[in-house]
Design a protein around this nucleic acid. Structure first.
Length: 319
DNA sequence: CGGGGTCAAGTCTCG
DNA sequence: CGAGACTTGACCCCG
């Protein structure tokens, strides 16, 4: 079976009930208010994450990518020193016990092949993500993937991926190593699925196949070939990413890398069982629409949907 | 209290 | 050579 999931934000809860999991602050505020305030925000974030997870279960979603911004300024303290740590941990444990596959996708600043401070920051950020999963009580495996891009090429893909592999082995904890995956990039100078196969051979990191990125940066492989290459690197059911092009379906002037608000084409899974995170801007609503399960929208939601739907409707009528 | 300018991090691309 | 983008806009100040 294929589970459908989406990334980070539940629009239904956000718009109607102000449920958000990414409360943060700018540097100035952190300097002024410190870990005390970070703790408050983190507690509210995890409490809201529990609501989102429960909403997902109530609506048939058993896959969800959590935000990597649950803990503001996480690199500047250890979670255990937060004033609200015990309460936060209790909520995380509750989340981890729910029957849903949780993943995360740390930011574009993570470069495991980087050097100096770049590498230090990367290790810190990735270890923090892994520690969150540990606190949730999740057994370390690719089931709960921590997925990143390989990062820049520094002018030499092979040398860079070799550095990535060395740092992976030398610098990361066992639990993090068990969770880390890499994803193919959308730009021709960055990494294709075929490029990333090198990493799999070196250190066994599975490849997250992103259909849309592949279409923009296919390398030598067809979609089916890249899909199968990535599929072969997994030791549990894979998680792949899917979205449609905003330029092709909603706005001819959009950047070619932009994701569409809605979903327009099915993902071909080539007869395999894979879970898919749909990276459409309208989040869970786009999946409900494909399923033909349009809920009764609140006036606030209708306003949001009408804004997003404009481009989509245009495509429909000019076809 | 709503709107707009601004915001940690690395690298690459585009204008 | 600076802005914008990336997996996700939210924070904070000012009028």
């Amino acid at each position: 079976m294929t589970n459908a999931g989406y990334a980070c934000i539940n629009l239904t809860l956000q718009v109607n009930e102000n449920v958000i999991t990414t409360r943060g602050m700018i540097k100035k505020t952190f300097t002024e208010k410190g870990v005390q305030y970070a703790s408050q925000l983190a507690l509210q974030n995890v409490q809201d994450l529990l609501k989102v997870v429960d909403w997902n279960l109530a609506h048939g979603f058993r896959l969800f990518r959590i935000t990597s911004d649950l803990f503001p300024w996480a690199s500047e303290y250890r979670m255990a020193e937060l004033p609200d740590f015990f309460e936060i941990r209790a909520v995380l444990e509750e989340i981890g016990a729910r029957p849903i596959r949780l993943t995360c996708h740390p930011g574009p600043f993570n470069h495991l092949a980087g050097q100096g401070k770049t590498l230090e920051n990367t290790v810190k950020d990735l270890e923090y993500q892994s520690a969150v999963f540990d606190l949730m009580g999740l057994v370390p495996s690719h089931w709960n993937k921590i997925n990143i891009h390989a990062g820049g090429t520094y002018g030499d893909k092979t040398a860079t991926l070799t550095r990535f592999a060395n740092n992976f082995t030398a610098r990361l904890s066992e639990n993090l190593r068990a969770r880390l995956t890499v994803e193919n990039d959308d730009r021709p100078n960055l990494y294709t699925v075929q490029d990333l196969l090198f990493l799999y051979e070196q250190i066994g990191t599975p490849i997250v196949f992103d259909y849309f990125h592949h279409s923009l940066n296919p390398g030598e492989q067809t979609e089916e070939e890249a899909f199968m290459t990535a599929y072969g690197t997994w030791d549990v059911r894979p998680v792949f990413h899917f979205s449609n092009s905003r330029r092709d379906y909603e706005d001819p002037k959009a950047r070619k890398e932009a994701h569409a608000d809605w979903l327009y084409t099915p993902a071909n899974t080539y007869g395999k069982d894979v879970d898919i995170v749909f990276e459409s801007k309208m989040k869970e609503l786009s999946i409900l629409r494909v399923r033909g399960e349009e809920p009764d929208y609140s006036p606030k939601m209708l306003k949001l949907i009408n804004t997003a739907a404009l481009a989509a409707d245009k495509v429909g009528t000019t076809d």
